[in-house]
């Protein structure tokens, strides 16, 4: 099982490494959103500083829909899904492997975004440990929920529009929890950021279990 997970994750990451979609499209898109927020908030530095955590995670949410769509389209082109099924790999392993690949890409974008908010919004990070822990735990949940819903809309004509409708409300707890944890790490609001990690971890565990259980049905039937 672990070998299969590794195979799927490296397969997706290799495809990404060769096509450079995250690097050349998703990354710049994330940066662009940060710049647009700057315009929208009239480059008002105190407002930007106060809203940094929220803007960071809203951007991650947008990026996650792109990353998931990309991950899904890898399997829908050239009948790759059927080949995956015929390869006899456990669907749960496919799910975990694809989730890891999405998570790695999101983490890379988050690092770029972190640099962006420090440079563009003058954000001052007070607790780097909390920032990295939040990114890691929140990203696991986002990747798991995204991969599951991505498989759900795979092969449908309207998937580009349906995926955000399904994914973004499900990610509401991640947006809330990760934003609060970042508020603490950036010192913008006096809250206990670490206590929010429990909620993010709970979300991650629930969605990983849900995905591992139902991915097979979606892979075979849809």
């Amino acid at each position: 099982m672990l070998r299969d997970v590794w195979l799927i994750a490296t397969k997706d990451l290799q495809i990404e490494w060769r096509s450079r979609v995250t690097f050349s499209q998703v990354g710049p898109f994330a940066g662009l959103v940060l710049v647009l927020f700057g315009f929208a908030l009239d480059a008002n530095r105190p407002v930007l500083l106060q809203a940094t955590s929220g803007l960071f995670w809203v951007t991650v949410m947008f990026v996650s829909t792109l990353a998931v769509q990309r991950s899904t389209s890898i399997e829908t082109t050239d009948g790759a899904r059927r080949a995956l099924l015929l390869a006899g790999i456990e669907p749960a392993a496919v799910f975990v492997g694809k989730s890891i690949a999405v998570a790695v890409q999101l983490l890379v974008v988050e690092i770029v975004l972190l640099a962006g908010v420090v440079v563009l919004y003058s954000a001052h990070v007070e607790a780097w440990g909390l920032v990295f822990a939040t990114c890691l735990v929140a990203t696991v949940g986002i990747a798991a929920a995204g991969t599951l819903l991505g498989a759900l809309v795979a092969g449908v004509r309207a998937r580009e529009t349906v995926l955000p409708i399904l994914l973004l409300p499900v990610l509401a707890p991640v947006l809330i929890g990760a934003t609060r944890a970042f508020d603490d790490a950036l010192g913008s609001v006096a809250v206990d950021g670490w206590s929010w990690l429990g909620l993010l971890a709970g979300f991650g565990v629930i969605n990983v279990v849900l995905g591992a259980l139902s991915y097979g049905v979606l892979l075979e039937e849809t």
Binding site: A145, L148, L149, L152, V153, G155, V156, R157, A158, V162, I165, L166, V170, P173, F203, I206, N207, L210, S214, V217, L218, E221, T222
Partner: peptide, 26 residues
């Protein structure tokens, strides 16, 4: 929205069921 997507009945039902469960669990 998932219910109104194209595809055969069984696939649509499966997709919608997973969404229903995701909503209930979350």
């Amino acid at each position: 929205a998932v219910r109104s997507m194209d595809g055969d009945e069984s696939a649509v039902a499966t997709r919608a069921s997973v969404v229903g469960i995701i909503a209930a669990v979350n």
